[in-house]
């Protein structure tokens, strides 16, 4: 479940934005439960790129090595809406169950 949540979080922060790895991590700061960190974000981005949900391009940087910017593909945009709907329903169902205690 955490893998799906991490992927949904990455798709969400890339929705409408083109970001590089550290910017993605900064947008996700505070969401420690996702398990995303400096050591895990790039393998996940690579997998999502391989699956065609995100695309990337290199941009030269004036301060150091080039940066790789990620953006959503059409496939990623198509996946985001149903994933977000599922998550909202799941969250609502879990809240209902937990509040019944």
């Amino acid at each position: 479940m955490r893998k799906g949540a991490a992927e949904l979080a990455v798709l969400s922060v890339l929705d409408g934005d083109e970001l590089y790895g550290i910017e993605i991590l900064e947008r996700l700061s505070g969401a420690d439960g996702l398990g995303l960190s400096d050591g895990t974000i790039y393998p996940l981005l690579k997998r999502m790129q391989t699956e065609g949900r995100i695309a990337a391009r290199w941009e030269p940087s004036v301060t150091g090595p080039p940066r790789k910017y990620y953006r959503l593909t059409q496939s990623g945009r198509d996946a985001l809406a149903p994933m977000a709907d599922f998550w909202a329903q799941f969250q609502q169902q879990m809240n209902t169950i937990v509040e019944r205690r």
């Binding site: 400096d38 050591g39 790039y42 080039p66």
Partner: peptide, 27 residues
């Protein structure tokens, strides 16, 4: 691709004074 991105990431973290923490997290 992986090496270039890792290099870019590590230099950026070093600039933030967070290199040791980053290397530790990467394993």
């Amino acid at each position: 691709d992986i090496l270039t991105e890792t290099e870019s990431h590590l230099h950026a973290r070093a600039g933030q004074g967070r290199l040791d923490e980053t290397l530790s997290d990467m394993g």
